[in-house]
């Protein structure tokens, strides 16, 4: 939790969200690499079993289904959607131990690995496949332990993990705001994926701030969200000018 339960502001003034412009995204994967190093995500020699791999930000390939030479492909980066559905996100609703909860002051759906009992109800509940399970203890080559970030604890075998919108970066930004005597609520910060994107395809900010870029883009006619029919109210929006991409947004992602 971000610790702002004592905020004087009414809950719900801040909703961090993301807009990913698929017209600009080239699927290079810099976002996913940045995410892995920022969040100490473990890797194994063989990462090709996608049911066992740990990935907070997954790149999906979309295809328009047409034959050569009308065939087209696009890449879709998928972080956690940080669902804003009333009362509960699908995963928070099923968690028996309150390991995954939504901070109603920021809208961030967090996951506290040390509380997690590894029942994986949340993985079943999540319609976006945004959660991964630690099937093994994380193990880094000895020399690579030097590049682990002290800001995010490595997880252990038997727990679930997922994208936190780089929550620790929010905490750091809030600390900085307090030191500078500014209002820590709704402070601007940048998650690692947004920072790394070479085409500037990812925009991040407060969706409830009408002047923010992210709020403006979320209302763009090109904007859509994945599986809106489920009323999970994702806070990750996508932009695309391709109709065939819009059409796939209501399919499942498997």
């Amino acid at each position: 939790m971000s610790g702002n339960a004592h905020s004087e502001h009414a809950a719900g003034k801040v909703r961090y969200g993301m807009v990913i412009d698929l017209d600009k995204c080239t699927g290079c994967g810099a976002c996913a690499v940045a995410c892995q190093q920022e969040n100490n995500i473990a890797f194994r020699p063989d990462e090709s079993n996608k049911l066992r791999t740990i990935s907070w930000l997954t790149l999906y390939r979309l295809e328009n289904g047409k034959d050569y030479p009308e065939h087209r492909e696009a890449m879709l980066p998928r972080p956690c959607m940080h669902c804003d559905s009333p009362h509960h996100a699908p995963c928070t609703f099923v968690c028996p131990v309150n390991a995954t909860v939504r901070d109603e002051h920021t809208g961030i759906v967090d996951h506290i690995a040390v509380r997690c009992i590894g029942c994986r109800y949340c993985m079943v509940a999540c319609p976006y496949h945004a959660r991964s399970f630690n099937w093994w203890d994380p193990k880094w080559p000895k020399t690579m332990e030097a590049m682990l970030s002290p800001e995010v604890s490595p997880r252990m075998r038997g727990v679930v993990e997922k994208c936190t919108f780089c929550h620790h970066r929010l905490n750091r930004a809030r600390d900085r705001a307090r030191i500078n005597g500014e209002d820590p609520d709704g402070v601007e910060y940048t998650p690692a994926c947004v920072e790394a994107c070479p085409t500037g395809a990812i925009t991040f900010g407060n969706l409830r701030d009408p002047h923010s870029q992210v709020a403006k883009l979320a209302k763009d006619p090109r904007a859509f969200r994945i599986l809106e029919k489920l009323h999970t109210e994702p806070k990750v929006y996508y932009l695309s000018s391709e109709q065939w991409i819009h059409k796939q947004s209501d399919n499942d992602l498997s």
Binding site: G29, Q36, F43, E47, K50, T53, L59, R61
Partner: peptide
């Protein structure tokens, strides 16, 4: 880090 990005219809085991 990059091997993780490879889809399983590009590299499988």
């Amino acid at each position: 880090f990059m091997n993780k990005l490879l889809p399983d219809d590009l590299l499988l085991q």
